[in-house]
């Protein structure tokens, strides 16, 4: 599904990622954990194609293709989905219009037919019910006036509608209370599929109680410092990141 090889990334000359290697197979859920500033969010932006980053070295292969060669919207149409840590508010663009435009644009890029309005509405109703989202919310502008929980649920709704093959969840648990976390995690789990991979980026272990990962990686100073099974998350929960924060030996 996804293969990252020796990825080096800089922002304005400042190295952020210093040689990441990661392989994600179809159906796997990988958790990436790490202290603040370790480069977790940068990785999610690089995968989704945000500019402002200089990739100085390395490759990313997605479904056999060079991901770095694809534009943001091409990646999305090819199934790469980023659930944002801070979903942006866009005044004036109605959420419903946005969902329909996105879905049909992706279908068009893939050479599929546009979904008719009744079919689309049916699909949205189904998915919103699962995520406990009020229809009224979708008449508002994207994320404008949404609570923190609503914003995250709206991200998961988009994920459910667009049915991506690679889901990247960037700190999806941040700012959520336990009930909201439960709803969001259930939404994510419903999407687990042998053909779909997920990268769950999180600072805390608590999300991983709900979304059980196959593998856990610790990101520190722009490198994967350690990889293991789900038990590694519990170990971090107990010991904290101190070990990784102090480990500056290889920073240069």
């Amino acid at each position: 599904m996804l293969e990252i090889k020796d990825l080096h990334v800089e922002v304005e000359g400042e190295p952020i990622l210093r040689g990441i290697n990661l392989e994600v197979s179809p159906g796997e859920v990988h958790a990436i954990m790490g202290p603040n500033g370790s480069g977790k969010s940068t990785l999610s932006y690089i995968l989704s194609g945000k500019e402002d980053y200089d990739i100085t070295q390395g490759t990313i292969t997605y479904k056999g293709k060079d991901l770095l060669d694809m534009a943001v919207d091409e990646r999305a149409a090819a199934g790469v989905f980023l659930a944002f840590q801070y979903p942006i508010e866009i005044p004036g663009v109605a959420a419903m219009t946005f969902l329909k435009t996105a879905l049909n644009a992706q279908r068009a890029t893939r050479g599929e037919e546009e979904l008719s309005t009744p079919d689309f509405m049916k699909l949205v109703r189904e998915k919103t019910k699962e995520l406990n989202i009020r229809q009224e919310m979708l008449r508002r502008s994207i994320n404008v006036g949404f609570s923190g929980g609503e914003k995250k649920r709206f991200e998961i709704l988009q994920m459910a509608l667009l049915e991506p093959s690679l889901c990247i969840l960037d700190e999806t648990d941040s700012g959520l209370d336990i009930d909201a976390l439960q709803i969001v995690a259930e939404g994510v789990n419903r999407l687990r599929d042998p053909k779909r991979s997920m990268i769950v980026i999180t600072h805390y272990q608590r999300l991983l109680n709900h979304i059980i990962p196959d593998k856990v990686h610790v990101l520190s100073h722009g490198k994967i410092a350690r990889s293991g099974g789900k038990e590694l998350a519990l170990e971090l929960e107990q010991n904290g990141y101190a070990e990784y924060e102090n480990n500056t030996a290889d920073a240069a």
Binding site: R75, I90, T101, A105
Partner: peptide
């Protein structure tokens, strides 16, 4: 950032 959000959902530029 608006543009990125929309494009990240597959909407062409």
């Amino acid at each position: 950032d608006y543009l990125f959000y929309l494009r990240a959902r597959g909407i062409p530029e």
